[in-house]
């Protein structure tokens, strides 16, 4: 297994664990819990810190395991990383656009039975945006794993 693939597996697991903790703090069943801004800020810093530290630790361990290897990364690794970044970027653009359309066409969508995001509610907006970020990162790692398996 390539080191980048191993990194993606471990990182995906760590991201899932951090997101699980995040959604435990934000959701009650399928309902987003109303919380004050200072509590959201605290959750935000905890999530970002946990995600960053876990990524640093995983990257450090993987880099240490590669010590002594003649070639650590080559053109295939870079090509796969580029494609995974492209997939993530496409997802983020699409997801942010959905949020923008939702915000702009709130009135138009209100008359329909479509699921709606209450963007005027701060916890909802916070949860949606962080979920998009997590989903983008997870998609990037899943794409990396798939490309290493099939390319």
């Amino acid at each position: 297994m390539a080191r980048a693939e191993l990194y993606s597996w471990i990182s995906l697991t760590a991201l899932a664990a951090v997101y699980f903790w995040f959604q435990m703090r934000m959701l009650d069943g399928w309902t987003i819990v109303d919380q004050p801004a200072n509590e959201l800020l605290r959750v935000y810093f905890l999530v970002i810190t946990a995600a960053s530290l876990s990524e640093l630790a995983i990257a450090g361990v993987i880099a240490a395991s590669a010590r002594g290897a003649a070639v650590k990364r080559d053109e295939r690794d870079l090509a796969i990383e580029a494609r995974a970044n492209l997939v993530e970027r496409g997802f983020l653009i699409a997801a942010v656009n959905v949020v923008i359309w939702q915000a702009l066409w709130e009135g138009a969508l209100a008359g329909h039975g479509l699921p709606r995001i209450d963007l005027e509610n701060l916890p909802t907006l916070f949860f949606v945006l962080l979920t998009i970020l997590f989903a983008g990162e997870c998609l990037k790692r899943m794409t990396t794993i798939a490309l290493y398996r099939f390319q």
């Binding site: 070639v71 650590k72 990364r73």
Partner: peptide, 26 residues
């Protein structure tokens, strides 16, 4: 072979298996 062409073993495996088409340089 990977060491001689400055690639990883995984890349040689993928090329041999026909899963990856390398650059002209490689």
């Amino acid at each position: 072979l990977a060491d001689r062409v400055s690639a990883t073993r995984q890349t040689i495996i993928a090329v041999e298996a026909g899963k990856y088409a390398p650059s002209l340089e490689l």
